[in-house]
Design a binder for these strands. Sequence first.
DNA 1: TCTGGGGTCCTAGGACCC
DNA 2: TCTGGGGTCCTAGGACCC
Length: 413
Amino acid sequence: MFALVDCNNFYASCERVFRPDWRKTPIAVLSNNDACLIARSDEVKELGYKLGDSYFKLRKQLQRDGVIVRSSNYALYGDLSQRVMECLEDLVPRVEVYSIDEAFLDLHGIQDLPAFSQKIARTVRQWTSIPVSVGVAQTKTLAKLANHLGKKSRGSNNVHIMEPPYPLDQIEIENVWGVGRRLSLRLRLMGIGTAQDLAELDCMTARKKFSVVLERTVRELRGESCIEIEELSPDPQHLMVSRGFKGKVTTKHQLQEAVATYASRVAEKARAKGVYAGTIQLFIRTSPFSKGPRYVNNASWTFRNPCNDNLSLVKAATRCLDTIWKEGYAYQKAGVLLTDLSTEQQRITPLFEITPRKTTGELMRMLDCMNQRYGPETVRIASSGIERPWMMSREFLSPSYTTRWKDIPTVRA
DNA sequence: TCTGGGGTCCTAGGACCC
DNA sequence: TCTGGGGTCCTAGGACCC
């Protein structure tokens, strides 16, 4: 048996952890640049606000409805997520961290599933203050659906154990894990509208007309487990840092600052994951929504010696920018992508290359250490800019209660 | 006034090889 | 004056997920 543990309204719940006075207050969390709604507490959902609604259109309404609005604070959410996952790892031996707010658990051999599932929900709530829902079933796909059903039926303490006969006819095809917008449209045209219909689809047809992925989904819906728990997350294939700007960027100097900032950030990520980049790719673009002239381009640079230090990556990204920069456009976004990643063991160093100076590695270790201790970007490359007017706005940012010394809450007894 | 960010996997099709 | 068959590898693009 598998369980899917899912944090309820995760970002909104995180904002409440250190603000118990907001327990019953409606809370909405905004995307980067405070652009649109990406998370809502139950109260906000009940008020009728939709995911992806743009903030500036709703500002007054939200104010009238007494909704607390927050900018997204990934430092906080990431840290609280880790606490939830550690809590789960304490309860069961095999846990797959599936996303920032979800995990699959292997419940093989557990006798009293209802009692154990309740215990999971209770313990996570007690230890981390984050409410979760638990769905239990025979396959991962079914556990996802069990979770979905559990959330729909209130009062069941957010635990739902699904046993045959599965109530698949109550589930719309769009809610099946692995069936997205395009697939559901195609399936509906074939008269497949519920999870039950999909479970009844012939496996060969699923594979031939669609793909092996859909065939797996069909089998999983029938109770045949095809997707295993993956405890260890494999080494990443790509790493990317991209952001939209606050306002538009029209000068090369400012775009260069952004590119250096993103390249530094992605370098940091690579070091944290212990991987080296074989190739770096830069893209810049104007807004796809604006009426002005459009421009999208990318350039890449392949290293003879795979690397993950800020200096090499910023230098390469800047070179890429030189080749694609064009005057006269209002840039809206840029991104830096690392590919051809290798680990220390896999890393190929050319036979006759001068090995990179040891000091670079040392320098990066010191840099990471200081930035971890005193906050992100305490020490950074000068070309990433000082004032940085293009940097995304986060007007309603809450403190990073758990990851920043100066933000640690004070308790008075 | 705005419209997120970061991943994975699969498939189709072209280049190239014998 | 014609043009098979069977591979591999790579890339781009499309689908999905959160």
